[in-house]
Amino acid sequence: MDRYAEIAQHVQNGYSERARKAVEAALAEGCPAERVLKEGLIAGMEVVAAKFKSGQMFLPEVLAVAGAMKAGMELVKPLLVAARHEPLGKVVLGTVRGDMHDIGKNLVAIMLQGAGFDVVDLGTDVRVEKFIDAIEREHPDVVGMSALLTTTMVHMKTVIEALKQRDLRAHVKVIVGGAPISKNFASEIGADGYARDAATAVDVVKELLNSR
């Protein structure tokens, strides 16, 4: 088993310390940080994400895996930053104004981070100005909005309208999700994508970025 496969295996097993040591060894042997990330850490996480999506793994097991990935990332990230490596993409997430529900959004954040995306989580009850400020500041590839109430889902459209008014709409893809949200609603308000759950959110984001 090569170093990259070894790292991927430790990540899949959720062994944080072993993953960290394998990454350390790989970097000491001169393996490029970018390959350690893609062929080791992300490759391991992708196997887990697929198992989670197909119902073969529970979320607590995924969280253990995410911990192992994080342990390895702490060693790799400074090298990637120094080499000006571009991340897979950046996603700004938030639950819309008036809505305090955040478990669904948090799950999406975990899955996106595990897939290698940079995630900026704005939290709950996020007003339109806060979304706009974050988009202007962070320049994300995607903004994701969540809502659990019929009386807050309408604020998703307000954010999209504000993006148009600020000439930001062309620069960022918009995905939406939450219990009362449907694919039709997403289309009606002008969102680019609809994620029916956390497991599919990563696929939706990847598809949107590939279609650019």
């Binding site: 008036g98 109430l149 019929t150 009386t151 807050t152 889902m153 309408v154 604020h155 307000t158 009362p180 609603f185």
Partner: peptide, 9 residues
């Protein structure tokens, strides 16, 4: 019951 999609504010 709850209201249909709408903004209370």
């Amino acid at each position: 019951f709850t209201l249909p999609p709408m903004s209370i504010e």
